[in-house]
Each structure stands twice: as C-alpha cells, then as structure tokens.
Amino acid sequence: MLIRRAEVKENKILTELAVMSEAYWGYDKRFLDAYRQIYSLTEDYIRNHPTFVMEEDGKLAGFYSIIESDDEVTLEYFYLDPAYIGKGFGRELWDHLVEFCRNRGIIEFVLVSAPEARLFYEKMGAVVVGDVNSLVGKDRRIHKMKMII
C-alpha cells in the first residue's frame, strides 16, 4: 500500500471514485449526478489543497483532501473504492490523514457525513456536533462532525 500526493491530472479519476463510493450506499442516479456536479474535483482544487491518494497494487483504493482556512480545517473528501471498504484501508487512510494534520500543527478538523458513514467516523474518533443541510438534496440533513487530534 502506498499513500502519496494526488497528481492534478487525476482529478476526473478521483471524482469518479468519490461518486462510486457514494453509490455504494444505494443512492439513485439523480442523486449521484447531482453529487458529481457539486463535488467534482478540478485540477486547481488538487493544486491548491492537500490531496492524497492510496494505491494498492497500482490501483487507486481511496483518497482524502482537506481545506485549510483561517476559521477551520475541513475534511472535504474521504472516499474508498467500494472494493476496499471493510478491509482496513479506511483506517490506514485515516491514520495518514491524522498524521499529516499533526505534522502541520492542525489540532482539529470538521467534516460532514452521510448517515451511512457516521459509524466509521465515530470509530475513528470524530463526534457529531450538529446537522446541516446537504448540498445534494434540498430536504436532506447530514451530520456535521469534529475530530480533535
């Protein structure tokens, strides 16, 4: 297993990996099309925000990315290819994220989570701090969580 910085040219592959990961939870085509439109990674995004990919035997298994601002640090993306879910890859990627944050002096970050992924984030140590409206579905509420490192 290798975790490395994402290359800007991987933006479309990472977008599709994120959509595939969302599809794992059974969302319909309309939801996934809206998700793809809202959360597409651009080359500029990857160039300007720490983004890391996990490879297993030369195949992209997952990725994460954070956004740092003056107010807070946000875990914007954390996705695994569904073939790697439940096999310990998420924990490995999370551990890399936490170590990366520690090395940058980041002591906490926030994230939003679909209900299906909440248990994973709680196992990693994040706690629910509220709910927010989803950008994908008007009447959909998702969890806002915080991770203190």
Score class of each variant (00 low, 15 high):
101 C>Y: 04
66 I>T: 03
85 I>S: 10
61 A>L: 00
87 K>Y: 10
46 I>N: 02
80 L>W: 11
62 G>W: 01
114 A>L: 15
103 N>K: 11
106 I>R: 05
67 I>P: 10
50 P>T: 04
73 V>F: 11
91 R>Y: 08
86 G>T: 04
101 C>T: 04
95 D>K: 02
46 I>Y: 01
88 G>N: 09
109 F>Y: 15
69 S>Q: 07
66 I>R: 01
80 L>I: 05
87 K>M: 12
100 F>R: 01
79 Y>M: 06
108 E>S: 15
77 Y>F: 15
93 L>E: 04
87 K>D: 10
82 P>K: 01
102 R>G: 13
84 Y>C: 09
84 Y>T: 09
56 E>M: 06
63 F>P: 14
111 L>Q: 07
52 F>T: 01
110 V>I: 11
60 L>T: 14
97 L>P: 12
58 G>S: 11
54 M>T: 11
86 G>D: 09
76 E>T: 08
106 I>L: 13
68 E>D: 12
75 L>S: 08
112 V>M: 10
108 E>C: 15
73 V>M: 08
116 E>A: 14
91 R>S: 08
116 E>M: 09
102 R>L: 13
66 I>Q: 02
59 K>Y: 06
104 R>L: 13
105 G>T: 07
94 W>G: 11
90 G>M: 00
59 K>E: 14
74 T>I: 12
99 E>V: 06
53 V>R: 02
109 F>R: 06
103 N>Y: 00
57 D>C: 01
94 W>V: 08
87 K>G: 12
100 F>H: 06
105 G>M: 05
74 T>A: 10
55 E>Y: 07
63 F>M: 13
64 Y>D: 05
96 H>G: 08
79 Y>P: 15
87 K>I: 10
60 L>Y: 15
105 G>Y: 04
53 V>F: 08
108 E>T: 14
80 L>R: 03
53 V>H: 09
100 F>K: 03
